[in-house]
């Protein structure tokens, strides 16, 4: 049941900021609504004001700019999945976007909404973190950029102030010599992730690993986990299967899955993380060597 609330459809970002400055604490911003409306119907969230962002043209776009990509906050998963630019140059984002929910959900759900809902099981945040993405946040006091991994501070908790909103997500173009991979385990195709893994491997000209990102999501802690251990173990090394396997085992030690999850026990998540991290690293390495991710 939806409680009594006031509903607004502003057409500019500045209107939203003005509104939030006044009522931020009592307001929920809504984009696709695929999470928020469910929570509202269950009575988990009871905002006084509901502000729809979908009528703001300047929030929806996929633009290649400088050395990277700018994705507007209300860009839908379906738009990301169907963008030729993303599929060709940011295949990791394509794979992660496509892994989320069903087509019907992807038609509605937005990248900004997904990030702001901050579920530890979300699929696109690990991919974004693996690409060193930043959130462009706007509010009364101007704009700021925050690396996405710092944006998530807990289950459904973000670093966003009550008078702020995400305007865009900025993704750097993966450096030359990069390969990426996204792997997910769920019970069905439309399920939330039991576990997901996003990996980027960037190789030097001599074949050594210049930079690596291993990001694990799917409820392995209050937020996704960017494995620093993997970066320490792999960067500067020639990547071979035994080292990758060892790294995968080390990464699994950084995970802290909750015992209350219905989707799988902590034991299963840990076991499978070793498998998925290894497979994702091997796949990304293969792609980096083949120059698939340019």
């Amino acid at each position: 049941m939806l409680n009594d609330l006031e509903y607004f459809e502003p057409e500019t970002i500045s209107d939203v900021i003005t509104f939030l400055a006044k009522h931020g604490k009592d307001t929920k911003l809504i984009a696709g609504g695929t999470d928020l409306l469910v929570d509202m119907k269950k009575g988990k969230v009871k905002p006084k004001y509901l502000v729809n962002l979908m009528k703001i043209p300047e929030l929806s776009h996929i633009i290649e700019d400088g050395g990277g990509l700018r994705i507007g906050a209300t860009t839908t998963f379906r738009e990301i999945e169907e963008s030729k630019l993303i599929k060709e140059k940011y295949p990791l984002l394509f794979e992660a976007a496509r892994a989320m929910g069903t087509v019907q959900i992807r038609n509605m759900a937005t990248i900004g909404g997904n990030i702001c809902n901050a579920l530890p099981s979300a699929d696109i945040p690990p991919a974004l973190v693996a690409l060193d993405a930043k959130a462009k946040i706007v509010g009364q006091s101007g704009e700021r950029f925050l690396p996405l991994e710092e944006f998530f501070v807990g289950i459904r908790k973000t670093a966003l102030e009550s008078d702020e909103l995400i305007r865009e997500v900025h993704v750097k173009s993966p450096p030359a010599g990069s390969g990426t991979a996204f792997l997910k385990i769920g019970r069905t195709a439309s399920d939330l992730a039991t576990l997901n893994v996003a990996v980027r491997v960037t190789l030097e000209n001599n074949g050594a690993c210049k930079e690596v990102r291993v990001v694990v999501g799917g409820g392995v802690g209050p937020t996704l986990i960017r494995s620093k251990r993997a970066e320490t173990l792999l960067e500067g090394k020639i990547l071979e299967e035994p080292l990758i396997e060892k790294t995968a085992r080390e990464v699994s030690k950084e995970l802290k899955p909750r015992p209350t999850s219905i989707r799988a026990s902590p034991f299963y998540k840990i076991e499978v993380s070793k498998v998925l991290v290894k497979r994702a690293l091997m796949k990304a390495l293969g792609r980096a060597k083949a120059g698939e991710d340019r």
């Binding site: 069903t102 019970r187 069905t188 195709a189 439309s190 399920d191 939330l192 219905i262 989707r263």
Partner: peptide
């Protein structure tokens, strides 16, 4: 019952 919803009780749908 801990999973009284289609979100948590998984039935097959078209892609499966």
């Amino acid at each position: 019952v801990l999973n009284p919803s289609f979100g948590d009780y998984k039935i097959f749908s078209a892609p499966d």
